[in-house]
Every structure is written in structure tokens, then in C-alpha cells.
Write a protein that binds this DNA or RNA. Sequence first.
DNA 1: TCTTGACCTTCCAGTGACTGGAAGGATTAG
DNA 2: CTAATCCTTCCAGTCACTGGAAGGTCAAGA
Lengths: 137, 137
Amino acid sequence: MNIGEASERSGLPAKTIRYYEDISLVAPDRADNGYRDYSASDVHRLRFLHRARNLGFSIDECRLLLSLYSDRNRASSDVKAMAEQKLSEIDAKIAELQSLKSALQPLVDCCHGDDRPDCPILDDLAGHGGRRAQVLA
Amino acid sequence: MNIGEASERSGLPAKTIRYYEDISLVAPDRADNGYRDYSASDVHRLRFLHRARNLGFSIDECRLLLSLYSDRNRASSDVKAMAEQKLSEIDAKIAELQSLKSALQPLVDCCHGDDRPDCPILDDLAGHGGRRAQVLA
DNA sequence: TCTTGACCTTCCAGTGACTGGAAGGATTAG
DNA sequence: CTAATCCTTCCAGTCACTGGAAGGTCAAGA
């Protein structure tokens, strides 16, 4: 099948699929007219990539996952370790965003948000927030 | 002061400070020997940038914040609107990460993680997870 | 047969926000 | 005088695409 159909079936944009070929994640056949020709297993691979990317795995991690997937002898513990690491990265990002939020929220809350030029948010960014506690060191 | 001291005082790496000059966020003087010469207000500006970047504002948003900061006539509502938008972006990112987590966690939980090749995580990625619900559509 | 439009190809460049490194000049301490 | 440290510029790489230009191919309709 052509790239358009492979795109539809995998959920990935055609541009992305070509890019994945550039970086050797898929290797479709070529038809006589030069068009890429995707097999069902190519599409399978693309769907795998789509899912794994959606789960937050990097391209290199996807590459590893694909090789583990096709390795009859791999242990599930290898994959589990990667997934667990991903989970802890996700937790760390959530924590970071929440601390960002708790730094920004009080500034928004105490900004009157009217036409006057006085603005606690800018004051804090400037590093002289007056009586208010500094948000960042 | 030289870039090294400006770096220490602002908390930004020298490389980053030079980059900020490239993109016209700061414009230090030059000494006779060609070295950059940072004033106290340059450092002030760099600290402002450092704080704003840490709060999740993009470079372009920082540029805008800086211009609002030096605009005697700006209304605090302008800044508040930006900060509120930032907050909702942060909330959206947190929600996304949490849904990522709730997709990945059950896979990790049900993977036995031993030497056997059977692995629910890869099965799910491959799109044929058996009796388990598919994590992704 | 011709034409239109959809689809495909390659290649180049840009994104955001830096970061690393090479090659070389300036300054400072001993 | 020398060695170490600091500074300079410039180029290239990161990550994972994405946009666009220029042009080839194909299927359907007049």
C-alpha cells in the first residue's frame, strides 16, 4: 500500500513516516514507480511506534523496544525496567510542573489584573516583590 | 563585569547569556579588549529572564514580559492574562502526564518482569494484548 | 485525448532553546 | 616566562518532526 494508506492505518502523518524511514525505523519496499510500498507488518511496526511514542518513549527507546520485541530471547524484565524508568520520569515531570504551578498561582491570585500599572507578577520576576515572599531564589 | 561574573550573579550559564545576546534579549557593552561588559541592570535583566524561564515562559513570552516590564503604561491585566494562560498550559501538561501514567502503570503492574520472554508491555505496544484492555486506541 | 486534481517523490530549511567543541586571543598568578 | 584560566567567534548538533518548493505519477471525467 502507498504511504497515504499506511498513514491512515497507523495514525502517523506521512511526513513522520518518511522521517522514520530516514532514521531507519522502517524500511518499506519500493514500487516500480518509486512509490513506497508498505506491507501489513510495516504498518504494524508503525502502529507500535505510534503507541510507544504516545506513551512517552523517545525515538531511541522505541528503537530498543522494537529490537526487544523481535528478540525471542529477551526477558520481560528488560522491558519492565524501561517502563518503570519512564514512569519515574513522568512522576518527576509532574512534580516539577506542580511546583511551577505553586510558584505561579499565588502571583496570579494577588495580581489585581486591572488597568493600573502595578503588577505583582512583574515585581516578582524583577526580584523586588516587596513584602511578598520571593517565589524564586 | 565580565560574562563569568554575570553568569554567577544571574545563575545562567555563560553560553546561554551569549545566546540571549544573539537573539537580542540583552545588549551588554564591550570593553576595549572585546570582552562583554555587563552592567548591574544587564544582570537584573538576566535574572528576570532566568526567573521567567523557570516559571515556564517561552523566550518570546519573556521578550513580551520584558517589554511590559519597562512599559510605564501597561496594565497589570495584560501580565495576569499571560500568567493565567501559562497556568492553564501547566494544568494541561499535568493532566496529559497523568493520563500517560495511568496508561503505563497497569502495564508495568501486570508484567511479571522475570526471565521469561512473555511481556504484557510489548504485547500492548504491538496491539494484541489478549484479554487485557488495549491501552491505546 | 486532454486536463484536472490528488497523490507521490526528493531536498532544503526551520523549529526551541540551548549545548559542545574547536581554534585562538587576553589576562592573571607565580 | 609560563601555565592556567578566562574570554572571543564560529560551526555543528540536539530532538522529533514540520513546512514548503519543485516536480513526477496516477485515476477519473469531459
